[in-house]
């Protein structure tokens, strides 16, 4: 069962009607095929129309959809032979950030990403994808390992932000994020980052300071959540839709601003409607990007990455 977002109510009504007619047809042997087909066409058109013109705030909701594919799904569909590695060797293991070696086709890579979890139990286990210092320090460890053994680094970013808690502050959340960003920028191997859901502030940048930054079609990437921005600038979280529009959080806007390099299309109606197809498109895009970077000398990779960030927003 798909769970529908508020703005998908008309689509939900049509799809429910189709479902109802199908069961009637099945049980009563009535010939409702033409009626069903008519409704299906209508529903598909409505879905296409809705998703072609999502507002930034609607995209934010799609990016946060409870059924949106997460790292776990991409690991299953895109990569093989994943070997997760754990711990920062300093304090602990943070399940909000998952990483390890895997194969992408024939290629050995290091995959690192946020995992939000998919039900109550796993969401708690993964702390809703909000990394703590030990998670970011583990990422630094894995990036350094990848650099030493020549494994390209693939990151999948999906977090509302780094965890805002007492123990995270105590253990140096800010420093851990700063070091992870620095580690990205120091990699002697290719790095391809993709914002697959939410790219929330510093907690996202720490895994996304790559020479190639991709975004799924309906993902969002921003300096602060629309609710947070609205509560500071408008003094009410209820202006979140306005804040999302003003901050330009969509992949389409960010491509225009040269903050990202490529948009990966999602299946009609969003990645959650077909995680396998979404994964296939993403896997193909990442493979292409890594192929294009393979053989580039480390010095040039570092230089490209540096120039990329120095140039953003230049006159």
């Amino acid at each position: 069962m798909i769970s529908y977002l508020e703005f998908e109510k008309p689509i939900a009504a049509l799809e429910a009607r189709i479902h109802e007619l199908r069961s009637t047809a099945d049980t009563g042997g009535l010939d409702l095929m033409s009626e069903i087909q008519k409704l299906e066409t209508k529903s598909e058109q409505l879905l296409a129309r809705t998703y072609a013109s999502l507002t930034p705030w609607q995209k934010t909701q799609v990016a946060r959809h409870p059924q949106r594919p997460h790292l776990r799904d991409y690991l299953a569909h895109i990569f093989t032979d994943f070997m997760p590695l754990g711990g920062d060797r300093l304090y602990g293991e943070d399940a909000a950030i998952v990483g390890g070696m895997a194969r992408l086709g024939d290629r050995r890579v290091m995959v690192i990403g946020h995992e939000k979890g998919h039900d109550t139990q796993t969401r708690i286990k993964h702390n809703f994808g909000m990394g703590k210092p030990e998670g970011y320090r583990k990422a630094v460890r894995l990036m350094e390992l990848a650099g030493r053994f020549g494994l390209p680094v693939v990151t999948l970013v999906d977090t509302s932000g780094a965890f805002p808690g007492v123990e995270a502050e105590e253990r140096g959340q800010a420093e851990a994020i700063a070091r992870a960003t620095e580690a990205c920028l120091s990699l002697p191997v290719p790095m391809v980052a993709t914002i697959v859901g939410e790219g929330g502030s510093g907690g996202a940048v720490a895994l996304a300071s790559a020479e190639r930054v991709l975004m799924l079609e309906h993902a969002v990437y921003s300096v602060i959540s629309p609710e947070g921005c609205a509560s500071i600038l408008w003094r009410t979280g209820e202006r979140a839709a306005d804040a999302a529009a003003a901050m330009r959080v969509t992949a389409q806007d960010l491509l225009q601003l040269n903050v990202i390099d490529r948009i990966v299309p999602e299946p009609m109606g969003g990645a959650h409607r077909d995680p396998a197809a979404a994964s296939q498109a993403l896997g193909a895009a990442i493979s292409e990007e890594i192929d294009a970077l393979s053989g580039v000398p480390a010095k040039d990779l570092l230089h490209r990455r540096e120039e990329r960030f120095l140039a953003i927003g230049n006159l």
Partner: peptide, 23 residues
């Protein structure tokens, strides 16, 4: 913190300043 009025471009100052520090 970041200057919200510049949205993502303010966030991009994090890697940008870090690049300068590396140099």
């Amino acid at each position: 913190g970041a200057r919200m009025q510049e949205g993502i471009l303010s966030l991009m100052q994090m890697p940008k300043t870090t690049v300068a520090l590396r140099r």
